[in-house]
Amino acid sequence: MRLVKLLALATALTALMASVAVAGPVFDRIQKDKKIRVGIMTDSIPGAFYNEKGEWGGFDYDMATEVAKRMGVEIERVQVNNKTRIALVQSGQIDLSVSNMTHTRERDKSVDFSLTYFFDGQKILAKKGQFKSVKDMVGKKIATMQGTTSEVNVRRALKEAGDPNAEANVISFQKESECFQALQNGRVAGWSTDASILVGYAAKTPGQFELVGDFLSDEPYGMAMPQDDSALRDAVNAAIQDMWKDGTYKKIYNKWYGPGTPFEMPLAGQIEIWP
């Protein structure tokens, strides 16, 4: 008899799980709970990182906080990295991913993106005075981070520059810090990713490393959201545009990339404003 009861209980449990699995549109849920779950990186300087005191902060961190504020909801920050930032949006565990992510068409098949909120481009960081352009890097090893657009771009750029062995010459690591360490200990001749990240690392060891050549590609950053939730997309886009209009965007930008900061970078574009 006990067994029968157990079986009945198991069936009931599975039925219960099935009913939980159905979720409503994301925007309605955010408004109802007054809470938005935002994925933010933890190891991207100065995008989002832990400082000396172990405090979380950075450009993306401030942007995410501001967007949530303007949507009038509380923010719940979730730590993500280059591997988890898209999968978590897909599986609905986060509602918004502000994690220096380039807006690409391939990614757009799986998640939706906001307006471009940051304008970046990919470059190569190398020891000072060794290389002039990408052509000089042919046959040399280059580090990238796995699961990023830079990985695909740098392979393509090397192939275009005439490297027959481009596939093997690009080594993909899991973290930015690992790429930089490989560059420091001489395993790779260059490290390629978005210029804003490279500038941050180059500032750690002033005078040793420099950016090589032109931009390999444009990297427009967008905030990722679950597919097909137009109300959420509108709300996020409106928040970004309002920030640009009233000068909050410039303030945040100057805090991290403005003149006098270690990561100084001129603002390269303008956020699209809808009247």
Partner: peptide
């Protein structure tokens, strides 16, 4: 350490195609 073994490749496919 950047060796393209099975887990790495599975991750790679995931990050390329989601």
């Amino acid at each position: 350490v950047g060796v393209a073994e099975l887990t790495w490749q599975a991750q790679q496919v995931e990050s390329l195609t989601f």
